[in-house]
Simulated scan of single mutants.
Amino acid sequence: MPAPLDSFDDVAPALHRLHALPVPVVDALRHWRGTVPAEEVLHVETDPRWADTDAFVEHYGAELLPFSANCVVVAGKRGGESTLAACLVPSAARVDVNGTVRRQLGARKASFAAMDTATGLTGMEHGGITPVGLPADWALFVDPRLLDLTHVLLGSGLRRGKLIMPGKALAELPGAVLVDGLGRA
Rank of each mutant, 00 (worst) to 15 (best):
W32F: 07
T53H: 09
L182D: 12
P90I: 04
A176E: 11
A62K: 14
A85W: 13
A107Q: 11
G34D: 11
D27H: 08
H16D: 15
H31M: 06
P135E: 14
H16P: 00
A92N: 02
A176T: 09
L84A: 05
R30Q: 14
A107W: 14
P22W: 07
D47K: 12
T122L: 06
T35K: 09
A14L: 09
S156G: 09
V72D: 07
A86W: 13
L170M: 08
D52Y: 10
D116W: 04
D143K: 08
D180N: 09
L105Q: 09
L146E: 12
L64D: 14
R159P: 10
S68F: 05
D116L: 06
A51T: 14
G161K: 00
L21R: 05
G133N: 08
W50I: 03
V23W: 01
V36L: 02
D137L: 01
L5R: 04
L146H: 07
D9T: 13
R49N: 12
T117K: 02
G80V: 11
V74I: 10
P90F: 00
D180T: 09
A55P: 02
V95C: 05
L170Y: 04
R94D: 13
P174H: 09
L153K: 06
D143I: 09
L65A: 07
D10K: 09
P37V: 05
G80P: 10
V25G: 13
R159L: 11
R102V: 03
R103N: 11
T83F: 01
V177H: 14
A86G: 03
L154C: 03
G183T: 11
A69I: 04
D143R: 06
K162M: 05
